[in-house]
Amino acid sequence: MKNPFLGTGIAIVTPFTKDGNVDHKALANIVEHNITNGTNYIVISGTTGESVTITGQEKQDIIATIANTNKGRLPLVLGIGGNNTANVINEINNTDLSQFAGILSVSPYYSKPTQDGIYQHFKAISLACPVSIILYNVPGRTASNMTPETILRLAKDFKNIVAVKEAGNNVSQYLNLLKNKPEGFGVISGDDDLALTVALAGGDGVISVIGQALPKAFSKMIALGMAGDAKQAYKLHFELMEITSLIFSENNPAGIKAVLQALNLCNDTVRLPLVEATDGLKQKIKDYLLNFNS
């Protein structure tokens, strides 16, 4: 199978009201903001969506709000992953995936399996999953790196494993994947700061955090990069460098929620153990956006 996830995908936040409930009105507004400003697909219930503090019922309600707002205009990807293989498969089996183009499944965290353990985990998921799978390698959160050899082994062995979201912030690993990947397998940046570099090197785009706040500029940058127009793409990259750095300077998604609050798309509430961005960071974000918009 060929990777259908091209361009700028966004790892959408889960907005909360000040009392900590899911803010479905704000969520719908963020979806519409992205649809009308160039985003190519939406990833639901990833790290940026605070998936680990969302209940099963809340996840279903979030899916419903996004699907009802989207109305089939953009492909949707659902995060289903974890370090309990049986639980991941159970969720796949008990989720209506007919409205999704694929799932994003994180490499097992905390347990620190061997590379063969990671391979066997995704083999079991592949055999159970009726839709396309994007592998998600984020060693800074999982405490183990899914090596290019393991990723490429999975890509060659299972047709429904169509791409990897690589978020190790490791240029050498990106280049290894791009050099050796099978035809049609997608290498998607999970690092906003390296997204243009990966696109210019032959990658399939990005699943972005900052892209949901500034979709017009960010998606244009990625499209230019994928078209090989480095000069114009880097103009946008340089304009976006500061805000891309700022949103990750404390924690994700506190930073991006501070940006979205400044844009009047949602407030900046996060769930413990995360805390809101500091006043200092919020001011830097506001100063950046004032200059960016002008």
Rank of each mutant, 00 (worst) to 15 (best):
Q99T: 07
T85A: 02
C129F: 04
Q120Y: 14
H237V: 05
L214A: 03
V13C: 05
R141G: 05
T65W: 09
N90S: 12
F248I: 04
G255P: 09
L200N: 11
L154V: 07
T147K: 14
K216A: 12
R153Y: 12
Q60F: 11
G225F: 04
R141M: 10
Q261Y: 05
Y136K: 00
G81K: 01
K235F: 04
I63R: 11
S172T: 14
K257M: 08
N3M: 02
I133K: 06
L97R: 08
S219K: 04
K179W: 05
G205P: 04
I10S: 00
M1K: 13
A64P: 00
D116C: 12
I207D: 00
I210V: 11
A262H: 08
A64H: 13
E239L: 10
A258W: 08
G46Y: 03
A213C: 04
L78R: 03
N29I: 06
A199V: 01
S51F: 15
S98F: 01
K59G: 11
L135C: 09
A155P: 09
G225P: 05
I62K: 07
G190I: 01
T114V: 14
K71W: 07
L260M: 13
K156I: 05
L97D: 02
N34D: 10
T269W: 01
T95S: 05
A201H: 08
A262F: 04
G186V: 01
K156V: 06
S189D: 08
A277S: 15
T150W: 13
G202W: 09
V43W: 00
L177M: 14
P15Y: 05
Q212V: 03
T114S: 15
K165G: 01
E183L: 04
K112P: 05
A195H: 02
T85N: 03
I10P: 03
K123E: 15
A213P: 02
D204H: 10
M1D: 09
S294W: 02
G190D: 03
G186S: 04
G184E: 02
L272E: 08
V88N: 00
T47I: 01
V198A: 09
F16S: 03
Y174T: 07
I42Y: 04
L281G: 06
A155H: 09
K123R: 15
A233S: 06
I151K: 07
A101L: 05
